[in-house]
Computed example of a mutant assay.
Amino acid sequence: MVRIDGSKGEGGGQVLRTALALSLVTGTPFTITNIRAGRKKPGLLRQHLTGVKAAEAVGAAEVSGAELGSRELTFRPRALAAGNYHFSVGTAGSATLVFQTVLPALLMAQGPSTLMLEGGTHNPAAPPFDFLQKAFLPLVRRMGPSVEATLERPGFFPAGGGKFRVDVKPAPLKPLSLMERGRVLRREVKAVVAAIPFDVAKRELDTVAGALKWRPDEFRTEELKRSPGPGNVLMAEVESEHVTELFTAFGERGKRAEEVGGEVVHEVKRYLDAEVPVGEHLCDQLLLLLALAKGGSFRTLPLDGHAETQLETMAHFLDVKVQVREVEREVREVEVRG
């Protein structure tokens, strides 16, 4: 039985999600205490509980402590099973984080699976659906498995109501080397608004255009007519020869459009200036994939709290060595060996 202190590292839901994913893959039971101790509302929220329930279904697991607000959980997987699964958060909590919890296990299953997930698809502090579709899943496919995601309807905080489908065809994960970004092939900045003034999108794009000096045809707006609730997301996509990265910021009540635009500008400039292929948020997801493949390497920005937490949690379940080397002040080279 692995014992994990959830207050370590970034002190949020990352520890729990990674522990659930690797417990399913390895068949190793675990107990976690101090769940989300570093957050304003510690313990399991609806999206974390849905992730636990999803892992329970995929692994036919025995679980204790799976209740809203619970700060301690014991999880014992019994049999990993492919299949057709439907998981609903029931709030605007992130459905994409629920997906990331069970995907590693379904990549290792003995047959194809279909996931239908409902909840938030475009949430602050979580990867939006577009990041999964354009940045993360293409790398999964390059490593062997086939994973296709389709957005049926977006769901913004606080209304939620989003829905997407994922089709998974497992295959052995192959090591991946991603040391160069290559030539930039395409750039796009898109401001999406739903049930809020269209002027917000224009001001966001004007802010980004003024700072990045990209071509006018690389900026566009999208107004959603049938969203379950109001919402706004600004996304900058950089498609290069060897990788695509996506940077996002979300509009919120009381937050100026210029501030949203400034957040995206900062992330894009930092990424492009460092000339690395892997951005900050893609790093921790890629770490897990390479650990499961028992090999690989990539260049990225300095590791953030999520990536450091990923390394600590992986060490409980997997016998892999991860070396992080500083190449320049803003460049790190990561190597994973089985």
Rank of each mutant, 00 (worst) to 15 (best):
E308W: 10
K213W: 04
L73Q: 10
E223S: 14
A81R: 15
T28V: 14
K53T: 04
E188A: 12
V208K: 05
V331H: 01
A274S: 15
M1A: 15
I196C: 11
L49M: 11
G93C: 06
V102H: 08
G120L: 02
W214L: 09
T313G: 05
T50C: 15
G69I: 03
E56D: 05
R329K: 14
E312M: 14
V25A: 12
G231V: 06
V98C: 12
E259V: 15
R78D: 11
V265R: 08
H86M: 06
H316S: 07
P230N: 07
V147A: 01
G120N: 05
R17A: 03
E188G: 13
K225I: 07
R165Y: 01
P77K: 09
E312F: 07
L289K: 02
M116T: 15
P175D: 09
F75Y: 13
T309H: 08
V58W: 02
R78V: 13
A105C: 12
F99A: 06
P42E: 03
T31Q: 13
G43N: 10
F75L: 08
D273K: 14
K255R: 15
A81F: 00
A257V: 06
V25K: 05
G305F: 00
E275I: 02
F298D: 01
E56C: 06
R46T: 07
P77V: 09
P154R: 10
E258A: 12
V336D: 02
Q110V: 02
K163F: 01
A81P: 01
E275P: 00
P302K: 07
A57C: 06
L73M: 12
V166K: 01
